[in-house]
Each structure stands twice: as structure tokens, then as C-alpha cells.
């Protein structure tokens, strides 16, 4: 097993494609393939994409109820390269609903909050996390924090990872993400800026704000910072500099689903091969995201897709 992914608050992703979607109106889904149900949550998404890149991985976290069983079963159906090891809790796993309108170029997302995690569940998870950690080299921790879990959880998990000389890849937002970054225990940090463009108490408005935030993350001890900037760009920082990666064409908002997770999977895959070259990892991550953006739904991209898109975006050195 190469990679351990942690999804503390997984979901069953319900993706519905509705042309000309409008609030307060009746809509009918025209095509059965336009109503899909997939295992979701950011860590799980990375697991699925990594399996498409040929990387054997184990997915852990919390699942609950019948929805949890569907998430687990569907993950294993996707690929033999995915092993599951979730702690099952009393309450039901959440559902994330995304209404994609390709004509109106919109995505409307409704995410529920998920189950309450009790202290016993957390204790059992932490023990299983530590034991599973001994079997992998890279750990991806990604997504929201469920109710009942303290904000220091990312810091706690990442410390266990980096204390054993392994690499911690983290995507998240808010106090949990910031505490882990500030503790200097995150190797690759990618703030999830979809819901709010705010990090370390600073609003991100213009490019300069993004550059400063990326530099702050590196100063705290991360090797690579990735900040999504506008729809088609990413600000990248390593200990060697700051760059703006920007796609050449326009990407419809309806094609953005899963691109952030593809970015992270591309970075992880690259760093499995070449642990030290963070800039190359960012390039391959961006390439994976651009490849994923060609699909309206979450699709399994291949290594060939990443190779083919490696020159499909511009790189500008900022500092």
C-alpha cells in the first residue's frame, strides 16, 4: 500500500445534471446518466483518482448507516486498488447534492453536515490510523471536520505522519487546516477556498493576497502550497519561489467538479515517484486538474491524460 487517505466526513455524492436549472421550478432529469451517485468526500475522491493512476491505497475515516455502507461498497467496486478501513458510527453518513447546469454554466451544491462522532469512535479511529500508518509512505488528509471532532485533529494526525518521516498532504479550510499548517506538520498544503476566500484571518482579493498567503504557508514549514486562484489559475509556492499556473482556455464552471481532488492526486502521484521535486509535483497536479476539467462528471483520469496535458497551461514566475 502506498497511500493512506483520510476522510473524516465522507459523503454520498449525488450529481444531477439539469439544463436551465432555476430555483423554485419543477425540473425533470432527461437522461439516466445525468443522475449519478458516487462515493464522495475529498479524501475519498483522491483515493478514487489515485486508483485510476495505478496507486494502491487505503481509505479510512468515519462512515455510518446505510448511506455509509453504500459509500464503502461503491468505493470497492471502482477499483481493486482501493482498500477500505472505516470506523462505522451510529449516525448516518451525509449526502452532498450537486446540481450541474451545463447551459447556464452553474454548479449549485448542497452539502449536509454529517454524523456526530463520539469520543469512543474517535479513539478507535486514532488507534487504527496509527496502525495503518505503519503500512504506507504518504498520507492525504482532506475535507471537512465532522461534529464531535476537535479542530486540532489535522494537527494531531499530521504530526503522527511527519514524526515517522512520511509526507502529509492536506486540503481543508478554517481553524483545523490553519492549526496544522502553523504547527509545521503539513508537507503539501492546499487550502480549500471554494466556500470562503479567507486564510490566517486575511481575505484573499487580488493576486498579491494569494501570493502572500502561499508564502506564509511555506514560511510555516510546508514544502508546497497550492492556492486556487480565479477559475482557471493556481498560485504555487515552494521554498524556491512563487508561480502562477494558468490554463490557456476558459473552463466552464460545470466542468470544475473533482478538479481540486485531481490536482492533489497528481501531486501525490508525482511525489511517490520523486519526493523532492515539489515544482514538478505541482505541474503534474495542474496537468491532472486540467485533464479532469475536460469531463463534466468526475471521471478517472489516466497517467496518459496527465502526460498529455503537461504543457496545456502557462507558467509565470511571480517571485
Amino acid at each position: 500500500m502506498n497511500v493512506l487517505t483520510v476522510t473524516l466526513n465522507p459523503a454520498l455524492d449525488r450529481e444531477i445534471v439539469v439544463e436551465n436549472f432555476r430555483i423554485n421550478e419543477f425540473h425533470r432529469v432527461k437522461n439516466p446518466s445525468y443522475s449519478a451517485m458516487d462515493p464522495g468526500g475529498k479524501g475519498i475522491n483522491v483515493s478514487v483518482i489515485l486508483s485510476g493512476l495505478g496507486i494502491r491505497n487505503v481509505a479510512v475515516g468515519f462512515l455510518g448507516g446505510n448511506i455509509g455502507k453504500v459509500v464503502e461498497e461503491r468505493m470497492r467496486m471502482i477499483s481493486d486498488l482501493i482498500t477500505t478501513g472505516f470506523v462505522h458510527v451510529e449516525e448516518e453518513t451525509r449526502e452532498n447534492i450537486a446540481i450541474v447546469d451545463p447551459l447556464g454554466d452553474t454548479i449549485t451544491e448542497i452539502n449536509s453536515s454529517g454524523p456526530l462522532i463520539k469520543p469512543d469512535d474517535l479513539r478507535m479511529f486514532l488507534r487504527r490510523f496509527e496502525v495503518t500508518l505503519s503500512r504506507v509512505r504518504h498520507v492525504v488528509i482532506s475535507g471537512s471536520i465532522p461534529r464531535g471532532v476537535d479542530n486540532d485533529i489535522y494537527k494531531t494526525l499530521c504530526k503522527k505522519v511527519t514524526d515517522t518521516g512520511k509526507l502529509a498532504f492536506v486540503e481543508g479550510i478554517g481553524p483545523a487546516f490553519e492549526m496544522a499548517v502553523e504547527a509545521g506538520v503539513v508537507t503539501v498544503a492546499r487550502p480549500d477556498l471554494r466556500s470562503r476566500k479567507l486564510i490566517f484571518g486575511e481575505s484573499l482579493v487580488d493576486l498579491n493576497d494569494y501570493v502572500n498567503a502561499a508564502k506564509t504557508i511555506i514560511e510555516k514549514g510546508s514544502k508546497l502550497a497550492i492556492l486556487s486562484y480565479a477559475t482557471e489559475g493556481d498560485v504555487i509556492a515552494t521554498q524556491d519561489g512563487v508561480w502562477l499556473f494558468k490554463t490557456r482556455g476558459h473552463i466552464d464552471r460545470s466542468h470544475l467538479l473533482g478538479t481540486g481532488d485531481a490536482f492533489m492526486a497528481g501531486v501525490v502521484h508525482s511525489m511517490i515517484e520523486n519526493e523532492r521535486d515539489c515544482f514538478l509535483a505541482a505541474k503534474r497536479g495542474m496537468s491532472a486538474a486540467v485533464a479532469e476539467a475536460e469531463y463534466i462528471r468526475k471521471e478517472l483520469i489516466s497517467l496518459k491524460d496527465i502526460d498529455e496535458h503537461i504543457d496545456s497551461f502557462d507558467i509565470r514566475e511571480l517571485e
Binding site: K69, E72, I82, T83, T84, F86, H88, M124, R128, T132
Partner: peptide, 24 residues
Amino acid sequence: IRDVSTIFEDETIEDFIVFCLRQN
């Protein structure tokens, strides 16, 4: 089935029962 749900030697019978119930 690639699932590594498990129980440790020093966990309790009650833990085992809850695990099995929740995971069917």
C-alpha cells in the same frame, strides 16, 4: 473484499458487538 475493518485483542466484546451491528 478489500476491507481491513478489524478489532484489537484488548478491545471488548461489547466493542465487537457494536462493530458488527454497525457494519452488518
